[in-house]
Design a protein around this nucleic acid. Structure first.
Lengths: 147, 147
DNA sequence: TGTGAAATTTAATGGCG
DNA sequence: CGCCATTAAATTTCACA
C-alpha cells in the first residue's frame, strides 16, 4: 500500500485522538467525510492501523508501580512462558529481543508486595531482572517528521 | 475517583476498539447512550483515560526495524537528552528506570544503516545498548482480571 | 446517576465527475 | 479517488425521576 500525505496526516490525527469523527478529520485535512472514511478504512484493511486503542493511567486504578522486567530463560522455557502468559495479568506487553535478555515485559503492579508475588511466579520460568519505571515520555513527533 | 464495574467494562471495551460509539458501548454493558457517554467523559476528565490512540504497524510504513535501546548517561547528560528528544523522531517512547541503565527507548527504524545513524547521534549524550525487537505480544487480559 | 425524547450532527450508501 | 446527496444512526442537550 502506497501512502500519501493525506494518509500520514490521518495517522497523525488519529494518533492524537482516535475518537474523532470522519467529518472532523476531514475538516482538518480538507477532505470530504466519505473520502476520509474510505482512507481510514483502507488503512485498517491493509493493516497499517492495527487497533484503535486507549492510553490508561494505571495509577488512577490503584496500580502505582510500573516495572520493566527483563527475563532470561533456560533452554526453550520461554515458549512455555509465552503459552502461560494468561497467568500473568500484570504483564501488558511482552517483547522478544536480541541480546543478553530474551524478553522484556511491561508490568502493572499495585505495590512492592505485588511485585514480590509476581517475581515468585516468574522464577520457575527464568531469571527476572526488575527495573522500576520512574517516568515515561510518549513522543508523537514521529509522524510530523515522516511527512 | 471510585470506579465501578461499568467503568472497568468501558475501559476494556475502549481498549479493544476506542472508536466504538457510545450507543454501541452502551449496548454491550446494558446502559443508555447518555449514561455511557457521561461515564467515558468522566474517565477522561479524571485522567484515567489519558488518550484515545491508535496502534500502527510501522513495518507497513517502511520501517522494518524496531529496537529497544538502553541508555547510560554521564552526569546529568540525560536531562539534556530529554530536552533534545525532538531531534530523535525515531524514538516513540522513552522510559526512565532504575537499575543499570537510566533510560529505555523504543525506536522505529527503516534499516540497519538508519540504526547506525541513530547510534551516532546518541553517542554524544551517552552509551546506547541496542536490542533488536523480534516480536511483540500485546496482552489485553489486564482488565478482564481486574474486574 | 440514570432514562427518554427532540434537535443537530455523523455515518453509510450510491451515483457521478 | 473524490464529491455530493440521501437515508439511517448516533450525538447532544435537556427535562425529569
Amino acid at each position: 500500500m502506497a501512502l500519501d500525505e493525506y494518509d500520514y496526516k490521518i495517522l497523525q490525527i488519529l494518533n492524537e485522538n482516535s475518537r474523532l469523527s470522519y467529518a472532523e478529520i476531514g475538516r482538518k485535512i480538507s477532505l470530504s467525510q466519505s473520502a476520509t472514511k474510505e482512507r481510514v478504512l483502507n488503512l485498517v484493511e491493509n493493516g497499517v492501523i492495527k487497533q484503535f486503542s486507549v492510553d490508561i493511567d494505571f495509577t488512577k486504578l490503584g496500580y502505582g508501580l510500573k516495572v520493566v522486567m527483563s527475563l532470561k530463560f533456560k533452554n526453550d522455557e520461554f515458549k512455555t512462558f509465552l503459552n502461560n502468559l494468561s497467568r500473568f495479568p500484570e504483564i501488558i506487553s511482552c517483547k522478544r529481543i536480541t541480546g543478553e535478555y530474551c524478553l522484556v515485559a511491561e508490568c502493572i503492579l499495585a505495590d512492592s508486595s505485588h511485585l514480590e508475588n509476581l517475581i515468585d511466579r516468574l522464577i520457575p520460568y527464568g531469571i527476572p531482572t526488575t527495573s522500576v519505571q520512574l517516568s515515561e515520555v510518549k513522543v508523537d513527533h514521529f509522524f510530523k517528521r515522516m511527512i
